[in-house]
Each structure stands twice: as C-alpha cells, then as structure tokens.
Design a protein around this nucleic acid. Structure first.
Length: 394
DNA sequence: ATTTGTGTTGAA
DNA sequence: TCAACACAAATG
C-alpha cells in the first residue's frame, strides 16, 4: 500500500495512472466538498490486472462518494403552478427558434414532448422508466412524484408532496403504493388511472373499516369489490392433520390438479422430493408459507413445514374445514381459510361472504384467547399485501 | 398524421 | 442519475 500526497490543483491525470475516470471524478468530488487542496490518497497496489478487474475495482471505489452524503441545502420542493416561470421561452436568436428548442420543464422527471405535451420518466438501475405523457407539466410532475415515492420510498425527492404517514390520506396512499408492484403503479400512471384506483381503494377501505367496526351488514360486504377467487377445494381435516405429525395431507386428486410438483426429483431413491414453498394468504392478509412436497413412503402430497403453526394459530380441530383458493387473475395468488364444522355456539353469527358461510364472534372469547372464529371475514381484501410470486421453487 | 416513447448522448 | 434531442414505433 502506498501513500501519496497530491495537490489537487496541479493534479493532472497521467494516462498511465491506474485511475479510471471514476476515481478522478471521485477525487474531484471530494475536493469540492472538502474545500481542501490537499488530498491524502491511499492506493492499494494491485500488481497485475486485466482491464476488467481494474474497472471492477475502480467501480467499487467509485461507489464510495455516493455514501458521503453532502446534501444540498434543500431538496427541490416547488409549489404548484403558482411559481412564476417563463413557461414559453420566447423565440430568440437568428432564425426562428419556434421548432428547435423544446421548453425544458421546471419539474424533476418531466420532459417536454414535441407536441407541447409533457412526458414523465424516472430512472432506475441506469434505465429510464417511462411514466407516460400528460397534458400539462404539473400533472406529469405528480406522476413522477408517485413513481418516486414508490420506487425510492420515504426519502424520495419529489416535486410536490412529501406524503406523510401522519395524515390519514397520506398513509392510505402509502399503503396503496406499498401494496402494488412498481410495474402496477407505472401502468396506472401511464394509463392515467392512478387516482381512480387509489380512490377506489380508499373507498373500499373506508367501507370495510366501518363495517367491521359496527357488526357489518353481510349484504354490504358481499357487494364489495374483491379480487375474484376461485375455490380450489376444501378438506375436512383429519385428526392426524391437526395432530403431532405436523403435516396436512392434500388429497391426491386436488394436489395433482392444483399444486403440480415438478418431476424434477424423479429419483426414486429419494424418499422425499424436495418440494416447493407455497405462500397462502389468509383472510386477514397474513401470509402462510408451507413446504409442499410428495412423500414417496406414503404416496401422498403433504404440506409440512409451517403447517403446525397454522393449526395452532387457527386452533384447528379435527373435522374443521380448510379451504384453498386461488385468485382468478394472472397472479395466481393462493389463499387459505378455515372454518369450524362443529355446531356454532349461540354467541356466533354467520356471515355469508363470497358464497361461503363464515362465523363471526359477537362477544370476546374466553381468557384463553382461543379464537374459534374463522378469519375468512377478511378475505375480501382487494389489494393483497403480497403480490409477489406465491410459488417459489426451493 | 400525430403522438408516444425509445435510442442515445453528454452533463452533473 | 438525469434531461435534451432525434427519430422510430405505435396509434388513430
């Protein structure tokens, strides 16, 4: 390792220094922010390297300055259309400048279009993500803000709103953003349906909350929009399904139809195929992940790892019914729900939801906290918390 | 015929 | 990362 002292003002990058442009800009960057002409430069001596290695190493080094946060005084936070700005830079100079110069936008992420409209774009991983075109600058700026919020999270620099969690609407929008993939948000922006969808989500949430707060009306709930779900099958759980075997046997017929296992492990010598992890969302939006595999020994398909937790939390008893669903859309999100088959206590009320009779507790349960109440009541959640793939190959 | 959105480049 | 610019793909 060598130590060298440079005077930045006289520093010239000689062609043979192992200093890539990255490093040079790094030093210039440091110089700008340290106000110092002297830089202590530590160079790791790298004996022999091919160019690719050098690039890689220097690229890593070059990432350092991004960590050195020297924030500008204030991020841009412009107010609406109020700011006076020459929107139309008057034609000037020589020949007519009417067609040549497009008026650059005052907003971040907003770019002029030849026809006078405005485009919005955001960059991610060195790539531009087009957010659509808009009739006016501010609208495009708002689109950028939404994308920035979704892509970069809390500390995103935006044109208008910081979108705080404290305020009710802000929180709702943040939740909305979090519950949709980047691609979905971008799609809404490009189709100009973002606000519609957001409002619909808000309306639904409000209705839902008020319904749950006041022993909701089944009819109302039934009419609520929800992602269409297709019932795959029910299973009345056996004693062993809820016993110490910690597994649920999935009836072969349904297993092979709905949860096909790749025959990757065709090796018969393997007692157990490795299986896959399946994610199921329950009525409360909670995601359950089970290992799903085929047991050669018993020639049966089973849910294993994760199942016992489900049994415990739902207080599943033999004779109860477990239902499996799948969203009808392309996402193929899986859902799981359960209900007791035994006669309901008087304190329960049956609610019909999505064509399924479920029960809801009227009164708090015993001190044990045992909740013999199905959570299917929450199945109507339209924006599933997890839009990710529900099927992950191990 | 327009409009949208990508390819590309160079600046910060 | 970001926007300016040119222009091709998409759209009506």
């Amino acid at each position: 390792m060598y130590s060298l002292i440079f005077n930045i003002s006289t520093f010239q990058p000689p062609p043979l220094y192992i200093l890539t442009p990255h490093l040079v800009s790094f030093f210039l960057h440091l110089h700008r922010h340290t106000q110092s002409n002297l830089l202590l430069l530590l160079l790791i001596h790298i004996p022999v390297m091919d160019s690719s290695c050098i690039d890689e190493a220097s690229a890593e080094t070059a990432t350092v300055p991004t960590k050195v946060k020297v924030l500008p005084p204030l991020p841009l936070q412009r107010m609406g259309s109020g700011t006076s700005a020459v929107i139309d830079p008057a034609p000037e100079g020589g020949t007519e400048a009417e067609s040549k110069k497009l008026p650059s936008s005052q907003y971040k992420g907003v770019v002029p279009q030849p026809n006078g409209r405005w485009g919005a774009q955001i960059y991610e991983r060195h790539q531009r993500v087009w957010l659509g075109t808009f009739g006016n600058e501010a609208e495009a700026a708002r689109a950028y803000d939404v994308a920035a919020q979704r892509f970069r999270g809390r500390d995103a620099v935006t044109n208008f709103k910081p979108l705080s969690e404290s305020d009710e609407d802000g929180a709702a929008e943040l939740a909305f953003l979090a519950n949709h993939s980047k691609a979905e948000i971008v799609d809404m922006l490009r189709k100009h349906t973002y606000h519609d969808e957001l409002n619909q989500s808000r309306r639904w949430a409000h209705k839902f909350n008020s319904c749950t707060a006041m022993k909701r009306s089944p009819a109302l709930l039934g009419s609520l929009p929800g992602q269409a779900r297709e019932l795959l099958f029910d299973k009345v759980v056996t004693p062993s399904d809820v016993g110490k075997l910690n597994r649920l046997v999935v009836p072969k017929q349904h297993a092979e139809k709905h949860f096909p296992l790749k025959h990757e492990n065709s090796t018969e010598n393997n007692a157990v195929s490795k299986g896959v992890l399946l994610n199921f969302e329950d009525g409360a939006g909670k995601v359950w992940r089970f290992r799903y595999s085929y047991w050669n020994s018993s020639q049966s398909y089973v849910l294993t790892k994760g199942w016992s937790r489900f049994v415990k939390e739902k207080s599943l008893k033999a004779g109860d019914v477990v239902s499996f669903w799948r969203s009808s859309g392309p996402e193929e999100q899986l859902y799981i729900g359960c209900k007791t088959r035994a006669a309901l206590p008087d304190s329960s009320v049956v609610v019909r939801l999505f064509g399924v009779n479920i029960e809801a507790s009227k009164a708090p349960q015993s001190v044990t906290g045992k909740r013999r109440v199905t959570d299917m009541e929450l199945f109507a959640q339209p924006d599933s918390l997890f839009k990710k793939q529900c099927l992950n190959v191990l």
